[in-house]
């Protein structure tokens, strides 16, 4: 059964002048960890706000737990958990006071659902008398998650929970989400970091208010239409320019240590020629087929659209 369904949702701002999202349809299954992946301004927050009943869509319908986001907003509000992107808790309340407050507001108590947040809460419990404003970024994030979970929601919406957080804290956060999934909570999470996509069960790639693709991360990678190569050489910046000007290369993007390239039809047949001509100008040229990442797919889909 689908837990969250969007059917042709469109939303504009400034009386229709600014398009936020257009004709978006997808559904999230019960107990699924679903990722909404896209850069800032893609429309992720707008979708989250529509699903959490904070915004009315211009057209289209959306259901959460079978309830309509417009008509049954009260029901939805008592069932879901939401962590907005700029959610910063009450900085002048202590850890304990924050948690207590949100528990009460959501008609619950810390004791009632302690088992759900226990694993996360024990990590910040030593600081429970500290004001939230004096916590580290990672700890704030954990507290915010506890606050969003304290009433045992059926669906959890996390809008960019890892933005601006360092790699170590990000890894920890995703570990926590995996454990929550085991508890049967449906989780919708958005992120601008493409490398986090593979940590979700299914993902929707979103750009400029439109969905580029929806599938499992593996499925999206398999749909990558061309052969992808990784290439490196001594002078990577020069190599990038040379590859771009080559008629044999279709696309070329820097990907960390390597550049990822796809070749034209002619290029595929004459890979050796390409390699040979590059070796004339570059030292230590290495070229090998490589598996696309979600970011490769995103770029490809972005350009196709």
């Amino acid at each position: 059964m689908a837990d969250v369904t969007l059917d042709r949702i469109t939303k504009t701002y400034n009386k229709g002048q600014t398009k936020a999202v257009e004709d978006i349809s997808f559904s999230v299954n019960e107990g699924e960890l679903f990722g909404l992946i896209g850069p800032d301004g893609a429309g992720k927050t707008t979708l989250f706000r529509i699903l959490t009943t904070l915004l009315l869509p211009d057209t289209g319908t959306a259901l959460v737990n079978g309830c309509d986001v417009v008509k049954d907003y009260k029901k939805i509000r008592s069932q879901v958990g939401y962590m907005p992107g700029k959610f910063s808790l009450y900085q002048d309340l202590t850890v304990e006071e924050n948690l207590q407050f949100f528990a009460t507001v959501f008609n619950s108590s810390i004791e009632e659902n302690y088992d759900l947040i226990k694993e996360i809460y024990v990590q910040i419990e030593p600081f429970k008398k500290r004001r939230a404003g004096n916590l580290s970024g990672g700890m704030k994030q954990k507290l915010a998650l506890c606050c969003a979970l304290i009433h045992r929601p059926t669906v959890l919406f996390l809008d960019e929970p890892t933005t601006g957080v360092d790699t170590v804290s990000r890894k920890e956060f995703w570990e926590m989400l995996k454990r929550l999934k085991v508890q049967g909570i449906t989780i919708l999470v958005s992120t601008p970091y493409m490398d986090e996509a593979t940590l979700c069960e299914r993902i929707a790639l979103i750009q400029a208010g439109a969905i580029l693709s929806i599938d499992t991360p593996q499925g999206i990678i398999e749909q990558f239409p061309e052969k992808l190569y990784a290439i490196k050489a001594g002078n990577m910046s020069q190599l990038l320019q040379d590859l771009r000007s080559s008629s044999l290369v279709a696309t070329c993007y820097a990907f960390g240590e390597y550049h990822h390239i796809t070749l034209t039809e002619e290029g595929e047949q004459t890979t050796e020629n390409l390699l040979a001509s590059l070796k004339e100008q570059h030292a230590e040229v290495q070229l090998s087929p490589t598996k696309p990442t979600i970011e490769d797919c995103f770029i490809k889909l972005m350009q196709a659209s």
């Binding site: 896209g38 850069p39 933005t163 601006g164 493409m194 993007y253 820097a254 970011e295 972005m302 350009q303």
Partner: peptide, 9 residues
Amino acid sequence: GGVDPVTRR
């Protein structure tokens, strides 16, 4: 931060 992958490059 938050910029799309093409613009980032």
